[in-house]
């Protein structure tokens, strides 16, 4: 990979990714964010499309690679 792809996460995406990174299920993440489980699916679908990946494993891989979430941990971007 010659060029690091850039992707900017919205606040909502960040919050969701952080929760999933802690091991939350879609449902519990949805509850904590006060959105529906269907919205969670949609947000992730959209994120996967933007990153050009097909499944959750690849999504994790891409976000981990881009350092968009800490593993495992609550924060996005490195602040503990």
């Amino acid at each position: 990979m010659s060029q690091k792809p850039k992707i900017n996460l919205s606040d909502r995406e960040r919050a969701l990714v952080a929760l999933l990174a802690q091991g939350c299920t879609d449902v519990s993440a949805a509850e904590q964010l006060g959105i529906s489980a269907r919205s969670v699916t949609n947000i992730l679908r959209n994120l996967m499309d933007r990153l050009g990946v097909d499944n959750r494993f690849q999504l994790g891989l891409a976000l981990g690679f881009l350092r968009k979430a800490n593993v495992p941990g609550p924060s996005v971007g490195g602040e503990g």
Binding site: L20, G23, L51, G60, L61, L63, G64, F65, V71
Partner: peptide
């Protein structure tokens, strides 16, 4: 699987 991906990605085990 999502966490597994995150960890392996952060460790640069494979390039996505």
């Amino acid at each position: 699987r999502f966490q597994l991906g995150l960890t392996l990605g952060a460790l640069r085990v494979v390039t996505p």
